[in-house]
Amino acid sequence: MGKHSTGEPNGPAAGHATTTAREHSTEVREAAHEGTSRPDGAARPAGPPPDGLRRRPTPVHTPTEPAPDTIASARGLTKVYGAGDTQVRALDGVDVDLARGELTAVMGPSGSGKSTLMHCLAGLDSPTAGSVVVDGVEISRMNQRQLTKLRRTRIGFVFQAYNLVPTLTAAENIRLPLDIARRPVDHERFDAVVRAVGLQDRLHHRPSELSGGQQQRVACARALIAEPSVVFADEPTGNLDSRSAAEVLSFLRRSVDDLGHSVVMVTHEPMAAAYAHRVLFLADGRLEAQLLAPDEAAVLDALGELSVARERRRATEPA
């Protein structure tokens, strides 16, 4: 999964890329300011503040104990790969709380630790040190059997590559987590989720008969069908065109706003991050800043500011 991630450019090229992206997003900013909708018809969840001031990234102040509305949290989260000269510190003592009932985006350059953070929070990888709590349960010291049960009952996943079973229909793929857990299908919920992703007329089609956007919407429905405590999405729009990406992102946002779910999404795309309630920025395994109620232009500016700060910090560090 991590190998599919694309990092933000650094150094002089980053300044040019950010400037170009800003120019390209002028129309997006103007449309958001006027309150226009996204291409798929969904209202933008955020836009520039009424006073015209751009939102700026702010430090993340994490309390000692998670707040009552926290769905997932980490304290002192550290992940080290390798040893000696080949050692890589993917996470360097991260403290973070993820709010229940929100869509949180995680961004950062390649190698920043964003996918590692998600994997540790989701129980897909074990931390070297620190603690992880999901829905009130500490998972960082669970064995593989306990983690497997947790992932079946409390955690949903959406991946860049869809990960659908090619021999199953869309309906069968959606029901798959319930079938594996030997849980009965709540037909009322199944119908509600299918309607939410707009797949009523595609349920009997296999993945090869669906577009990329439709396949990813099947994956989203599969992640939500078992009513998980939290859904983790790793670059969910990385393989999609802009319109299909907007459909998937709109659904993820609606699943939070209308269905009360909690979603954590790793992405490198400012457009995708603009659908979130909050964006967290990682660099060099550390949590650098956050951006609340983001719009695309504010995310681009934040990436530029943080890239410059990162380069300055690296220049002053001992070799």
Rank of each mutant, 00 (worst) to 15 (best):
T19S: 14
A67P: 11
N173I: 10
Q215A: 10
G304Y: 09
R100W: 04
V231P: 00
L306P: 01
E65S: 14
D51L: 10
Q215N: 12
D69R: 06
V133R: 13
L77G: 00
V88C: 10
P63I: 03
L240F: 08
N163Q: 15
R38V: 01
T316H: 13
Y275N: 11
T20G: 12
A32M: 07
D234V: 05
T18W: 04
V60S: 07
A221W: 04
E247C: 02
G111H: 02
R54K: 04
V106Y: 03
L147Q: 13
V94K: 00
N10L: 14
A31V: 04
Q216M: 07
R151L: 09
E30H: 12
V185E: 08
R183A: 15
A170K: 05
L53A: 14
D295K: 05
L249V: 11
Y162M: 09
K149E: 15
L77F: 00
S25Q: 04
M142W: 01
V264T: 07
L259M: 15
S73G: 03
E247W: 00
F190L: 12
V266I: 10
R44K: 11
V299I: 08
T36F: 11
P49Q: 11
R254C: 08
A31E: 13
P9F: 03
R310Q: 14
L203Q: 08
I155R: 01
I225K: 07
H204Y: 06
D201K: 13
D92G: 01
L117M: 11
G93V: 00
R89L: 12
H205F: 06
L121Y: 05
E235A: 04
A289Y: 07
S126M: 07
I174P: 07
P63Y: 03
G2K: 06
S115G: 04
C220H: 01
A17N: 09
E30D: 14
D125H: 02
A14C: 09
E27T: 14
H16L: 13
R75V: 10
L176H: 11
R182D: 15
G136C: 09
L176K: 05
G285Y: 00
T18L: 12
S242F: 07
A221F: 07
R278G: 02
V132E: 00
H268S: 10
S229W: 01
